[in-house]
């Protein structure tokens, strides 16, 4: 991962010292999350070694994959100081549509995935156009889209269900198969993560997303094509959500209308836990993915630790709050340190 992210940094040819300091700050957020994750996994593993046997690791990775994908998509929107609450509905609609499409047929994997992406793109286009060209608050529009897409999905499905027996074997294999012992889904998530990270840091348009999020006014004055960039972010998030829907079908085999119902808040919390500020401008896709991994691992660990399922919600909530508070405190410390150091280097003035 680091090799990938470092290359474009060098290519941009910015002053090395300042850049590496910024890197340290950014990385600190992710390191604290990764630390929490490792600690959690270690403790659970000590309590129950089966948590990390081959089946356990496979389950852990598979559980997290879809949330990781959605979190990566969401992080690209959130850095622009926007939000996409419709992802749960889009995933649900796409999963059901793909299920309906492949049911009792021999449709291939590729065309199904493309269908999912197309549905997601269409939804993302509507949300994105409303937010960027309609200049309306993202929270309201995407909340509206959440309802609209969910209503259409339920209306269309009207109690139908696609069963695993109806889904072609090739598609189910995508959800459960693996290469060299690593299941496909986590691999897909890692590839998307690498591409997104590369884009956000290596391309001008990627970095412009951060500029828009941290100071829209300045970004506009600097001539950033804001509307196009924000629309692009929504298209990406929508496409990822649609893609995740197709994978949902592959993974679970059974789909009904309300798949991924209520997922939007889980995705947003994963992104926030991952250090992507809801106020825009900071955070990485890599952090969001870690956040998603942490959120699902908490869930799995509690079950393995035989914590009563009644406690699960409370503990998850408390850990989320602790994570964002700790993140905030670390961030404040690092900013202070950064300021001190840049003052010493004479950048302070």
């Amino acid at each position: 991962m680091t090799t990938l992210t470092d290359k474009p940094t060098a290519a941009t040819g910015e002053p090395g010292s300042a850049r590496s300091l910024v890197d340290t700050v950014f990385r600190a957020r992710e390191i604290s999350i990764a630390g929490a994750l490792v600690l959690l996994i270690l403790c659970t593993w000590i309590a129950n070694p089966r948590f990390l046997d081959s089946q356990g690791v496979k389950d852990l990775l598979l559980n997290a994959s879809i949330l990781v994908l959605l979190a990566i998509g969401q992080s690209v929107v959130v850095v622009t100081r926007n939000i996409d609450l419709s992802v749960g509905s889009v995933t649900g609609l796409s999963a059901f549509a793909c299920g309906k499409f492949v049911a009792d047929t021999e449709h291939g994997v590729l065309i199904t995935l493309l269908l999912g992406v197309a549905i997601g793109l269409a939804c993302g286009l509507v949300s994105g156009a409303l937010v960027s060209f309609g200049r309306v608050p993202a929270l309201v529009v995407t909340l509206g889209m959440l309802y609209i897409i969910q209503g259409l999905d339920y209306w269309w499905a009207s109690g139908d269900q696609i069963n695993a027996a109806q889904v072609p074997e090739a598609i189910l294999h995508l959800g459960s198969g693996s290469v060299l012992g690593v299941p496909y889904l986590p691999l897909i998530a890692v590839v998307l993560l690498a591409l997104t990270t590369y884009f956000l840091r290596g391309y001008r348009s990627g970095r412009e997303l951060y500029a828009i999020g941290s100071n829209p006014e300045a970004a506009r004055l600097a001539g950033t094509p804001m509307r196009r960039r924000v629309l692009g972010a929504y298209l990406f998030s929508g496409a990822v959500a649609g893609f995740a829907g197709a994978l949902w079908l592959a993974r679970f085999g059974t789909v009904v209308a309300d798949n991924a119902h209520g997922y939007e808040l889980t995705v947003v919390s994963a992104v926030v836990v991952g250090g992507v500020a809801i106020t825009g401008g900071t955070g990485t896709a890599w952090g969001a993915a870690l956040g998603a991994l942490l959120v699902t691992t908490i869930g799995s660990a509690l079950v393995v630790l035989k914590v009563s399922s009644f406690w699960q919600g409370a503990i998850t909530g408390a850990l989320l709050l602790a994570a964002i508070s700790a993140d905030r405190i670390v961030n404040l410390r690092m900013t202070a340190a950064l300021r001190k150091r840049s003052a010493r280097h004479g950048h302070g003035a």
Binding site: N48, R50, F51, Q55, G56, D59, N63, F252, T254, V255, V256, N259, A260, G299, S300, V303, V304, S309
Partner: peptide, 13 residues
């Protein structure tokens, strides 16, 4: 569906 799936995993672990 998904929650039941994950609960099954958890039970077996």
């Amino acid at each position: 569906d998904q929650k039941s799936f994950q609960q099954t995993q958890g039970l077996l672990q």
